[in-house]
Nucleic acid binder design. Sequence first.
RNA 1: GCCCUUGUAGUUCAAUGGAUAGAAUAGGUCCCUCCUAAGGAUUAGAUGUAGGUUCGAUUCCUACCAAGGGCACCA
Length: 542
Amino acid sequence: MIEIKQYISEVIHAGLAKLEIKENVLVEKSANSDFGDFSSNIAMALAKTLRKNPLEIAKMIQSELTIDKKIISDHSVTQPGFLNFRVAKLFYQKTVTEIIASADTFGRTDTGKGKNANVEFVSANPTGPLTVGHGRQAVLGDTIANILEWHHYDVTREYYYNDAGRQMRILGQSVTARYLDQVGQEGDFPEDGYEGDYIKTIAKEILERHGDGLSPEDRIFRTYAEELIFADIKNTLEIIGINHDVFSNEQTYYNTGAIDAVVEDLRNKNLIYESEGATWLKATALGLEKDRVYYKSSGEPTYRLPDTAYHRDKLNRNFDLIIDLFGADHADTYPDVLAALEALGIDIAPIRVLIHQFVTLLKSGKKVKMSTRKATFVTLEELIKQVGPDVVRYFFIMRSMNSHLNFDLDLAADQSEKNPVYYLQYAHARICNIIKNGAEKHLAVTGEFDSALLSDDAEISLIKVLTEFPEVMATALENMEPQGIANYLHHMSAEFHKFYASCRVITDDHDLSTARLNLITAVKIILGNGLGVLGVSAPERM
RNA sequence: GCCCUUGUAGUUCAAUGGAUAGAAUAGGUCCCUCCUAAGGAUUAGAUGUAGGUUCGAUUCCUACCAAGGGCACCA
């Protein structure tokens, strides 16, 4: 389909050349198929410079077009000056053969060939179970990684967490307090402590394993909590089909001296100063709004400093593309990190920052602020157990990352049986079943068939959708948004179900049956590949 | 107060500046002697407000209103 657009664009260019006009030509899919399959607004764009009615210009261009009837069967001019083109059936019919022949390569580009990409996502600190909110980022990140892999990038999925700061210290203190409670001592629960019941469970496990004589100073409270929580996080990710290749953490960068190096290198550039007992980054000198603290007066660094060291390291690992997927709360903070890196003379061009909006949790119709600390969350695991991984993934992929989406667990459970993902999976299962029935009647899909037999309206509409797949996948890569793929697959499934209702595949007509079996096999290939990229299963039966 | 997102059917979401604003769900009305009715057909229903740019605006700009996030020596 990309070729068709290009072909039309070239045809118009040639026409314009005869008229001695130079202008960029834009060809797009027609919104309404009554007008044709593609249209160009070139005449409207030229109206101003030529000082002519766009309709006249369109007619003028039309009369100069030289068109291959085997590709474009018909063209017309309509108000207010659109040039319309209808693609020949033959072109569509041939596409089915092409899809079956190229199978897994249909719709891929070589954009990522020989290139390495790093996608950092989830990156939740191990202070509690993953919530529905984290789920959004987890699914988005993994699917974006899949899209990159589809286009031949070699992808590293990375999880970075802060394990040296205040949050983990408070986690340890919270566990200590619960432990002391359980051994009958007065536990001093920290003010900003983690209130979830899982903290009590961890404390209980420590009690069972290590007895009641531990000192409140013992590091085991923190390390054991981190270990258990991380195991839980990894388990949750695994059941939704997500596996990170690399886990990196803040502590490493202290150990290797990378953090000191960042400060020293910036100091050499006069971008570090001390004030009120703290160490500051002179961010204003880098064009930012205000200076930022690197080391608090307590001597503890802020997250910003290790993050900078971490990104410096990531850039040094020579990725061609680095995706940072953050929640909206980070929108204001990454510019500091990028500015510091640039000041260090590092090329930050490979970095692409993606920001997604938050999930608002609704409980009995009311908004609840999700907080790990206050334990006001629905865990991702809970949700997956209730509705299944496919529904969870599709739920998040359907929405653009910019939408502030509302999440009501009761509603989600209620509606899970009507989840649109089943509509796609059902189409796939139906196809598999028909192919099975065909095989029983010794009808095989070989790619050898008379494509001209596929001329029913429902068949042509279905094939048209198939031809759009490469463009959908290319756009997904450009925008780094999986959403378009979900919309597309839904549209394709709808066309398939319509086709199913009006055209019977297995009949006494051997040739027609074979042609239709090839057609639905092409649908199965694309649906299967698309669902694969979304990380959603493509069942053979439901 | 300043900055970033976002306001579209009753609800949850779509729509590279284009033609009649799409789905899903909820509500009407139909269709299983036929490859899975987890389906199909059909009906009804929406661009926050006020300006501006443009041949053309849901899309771009300005103001206002509303929601979420940020403006920490929290991450």
